[in-house]
Simulated assay, not measured.
Amino acid sequence: MNARGDIRQDLIDQLEANGIYGHHYVDMIEKYMQFWDLDTKLVLVIEEEGTMLPARDGFKMNPAIKSRNENNTQMLKILTTLGLKAPATQSQGDVDGEDM
């Protein structure tokens, strides 16, 4: 399996271990995975463009950083709602040496 598949399966396994069953809960995991996909893309954007971008008056923070922080907040809300923990294989945080 790939990292995405491993994470998805880990979340489903956690649900089952907690005795939580139902399509509604699996749908929430699917939403979590959509946010995970977006997070992966945002990391690539930040890696390619850098944390600071040229602006008219010098430099500005890459807007992808703010988007990533908002995205991660939504991911954490889903995990909290489901009573789950982020899988260990997930990497959220270090981008160019800065914690998110």
Rank of each mutant, 00 (worst) to 15 (best):
M1W: 15
N2I: 15
N2D: 14
A3T: 14
R4H: 15
R4F: 14
D6N: 15
D6L: 11
D6G: 14
L11C: 11
D13V: 12
D13F: 13
Q14D: 14
L15G: 10
A17F: 13
A17H: 11
G19D: 04
I20L: 11
Y21V: 09
G22N: 00
V26Q: 06
M28R: 03
M28E: 13
I29C: 02
E30M: 07
E30N: 12
K31Q: 11
K31C: 08
Y32V: 04
Q34K: 15
W36R: 08
D37P: 04
D37A: 07
D37M: 04
D37K: 03
L38N: 07
D39L: 00
T40H: 10
T40F: 06
L44P: 00
L44R: 03
V45D: 06
E47I: 07
E48K: 14
E48M: 13
T51K: 12
T51D: 12
M52R: 08
P54N: 05
A55W: 08
A55Q: 06
A55M: 04
D57F: 05
G58F: 07
G58I: 06
G58C: 04
F59E: 14
M61I: 13
P63V: 01
P63T: 02
I65R: 10
I65G: 02
K66E: 10
K66Y: 15
S67G: 02
R68C: 05
N69C: 12
E70C: 03
T73V: 14
T73P: 03
Q74V: 01
Q74L: 09
M75V: 04
M75K: 07
I78H: 02
I78E: 01
T81A: 03
T81P: 01
T81Y: 08
L82F: 04
L82H: 00
G83W: 00
L84Q: 00
K85I: 03
K85W: 02
A86E: 08
A86S: 09
P87E: 03
Q90E: 14
Q90P: 02
S91R: 11
G93S: 09
G93R: 09
D94M: 14
D94W: 08
D96C: 09
E98N: 14
E98M: 13
E98G: 11
E98S: 10
D99K: 15
M100A: 09
